[in-house]
Design a binder for these strands. Structure first.
Length: 99
DNA sequence: GCTCTGACGATTT
DNA sequence: GAAATCGCCAGAG
C-alpha cells in the first residue's frame, strides 16, 4: 500500500497528458502541499509502478529533467518519444502543462 | 518522540 | 552561469 502523499501525487500524475510535463513545484501545489515539494518528490521516487504511473513526466522547476529510476537519459528519451520537446537536457516551456 | 534522509526549490557565493 | 547552502514537508528508522 502507499501513503497518503503517494496516492495524491500519483493521482495527479495520471492526469498529465502524453507529451506534456509538470514541475515538482507545480505538482506539489496541485496536491495541496506547495511547500512540501521535497515530500512530493520523495513520494514520486517511491513509485515502483512505472507502467501504471507515468512518473517520468515530472521534471524540475528549472526545466531540467531531474532524476529517474531508469536513469535521466532514459527519461529524456522517453519524454521525447512521447512528443515532449527537450533541448540540451532542458524541457521546452510549451511542454509544460498546468494542473 | 527524536533524528536522518530525500526523483526539490530558491537564494547566495 | 555553475556550484554550494539553507529551507521546506513527509516518511522511515
Amino acid at each position: 500500500m502507499a501513503t497518503e502523499l503517494q496516492e495524491r501525487v500519483w493521482k495527479k500524475l495520471k492526469q498529465i497528458p502524453q507529451g506534456k510535463v509538470v514541475s515538482y513545484a507545480e505538482l506539489a501545489r496541485a496536491v495541496g502541499n506547495a511547500q512540501a515539494v521535497r515530500a512530493v518528490a520523495s513520494a514520486v521516487g517511491k513509485n515502483t509502478k512505472l507502467i501504471t504511473i507515468p512518473c517520468h513526466r515530472v521534471v524540475r522547476s528549472d526545466r531540467s529533467v531531474g532524476k529517474y529510476a531508469k536513469g535521466e537519459k532514459k527519461k529524456i528519451a522517453l519524454l521525447k518519444k512521447e512528443g515532449v520537446r527537450i533541448t540540451d537536457g532542458k524541457v521546452d516551456r510549451e511542454s509544460f502543462v498546468n494542473l
